[in-house]
């Protein structure tokens, strides 16, 4: 009997050939979250870039374009908190929309830690639930402390 102790009675329709179908469920959920997050964020970043160049003739090639150097120095201001990004994106600014995409990308791996945490709790694997919860606390800390550090 190679079944794991936690599931002695199989649910009807459960795949008997897959002894760790719960594990498989987690794997598929994680793979989906990662793929979807990357796809959505890259699309948003792409759209934001197009809008940025569409709205700023000076960013394009021409006689009166500005130098790229003005945009890639610390003096160039762009929103660096969630409400600032929201305001900028809501006004249709390309840079704000790029930042929304970057935040979605940043949240993608975090979302899969959340998924793992929920799945471990459902499996009543308390040890791994605590471990994944600590990781989430550290991740939350990075946003909070970055502001004050």
């Amino acid at each position: 009997m190679l079944h794991d102790q936690s599931s002695p009675s199989a649910i009807p329709g459960d795949d008997h050939k897959e002894p760790n179908s719960k594990e498989r469920q987690m794997e598929l959920a994680i793979a989906f979250i990662l793929r979807a997050g990357v796809l959505i964020s890259i699309t948003v970043i792409f759209v934001g870039s197009i809008l940025m160049f569409a709205h700023h003739p000076g960013y394009r090639v021409g006689h009166n374009h500005i130098s790229y150097r003005k945009l890639v120095v610390h003096k160039f201001r762009f929103p660096n908190d969630l409400s600032g990004v929201y305001r900028s994106a809501a006004s249709g600014d390309g840079i704000g929309i790029i930042l929304v995409g970057l935040i979605v990308l940043l949240l993608t791996p975090i979302a899969r830690v959340v998924a793992g945490n929920i799945e471990f709790m459902r499996q009543r694997d308390w040890k791994m639930s605590i471990i994944t919860f600590i990781v989430l606390v550290v991740l939350a800390g990075s946003f909070l402390l970055g502001k004050h550090g």
Partner: peptide
């Protein structure tokens, strides 16, 4: 993602 959070809050992630 853990370090990107800090970099973002600090304004070190330039969208351009």
């Amino acid at each position: 993602a853990a370090s990107a959070g800090v970099y973002f809050a600090r304004g070190d992630i330039d969208p351009v």
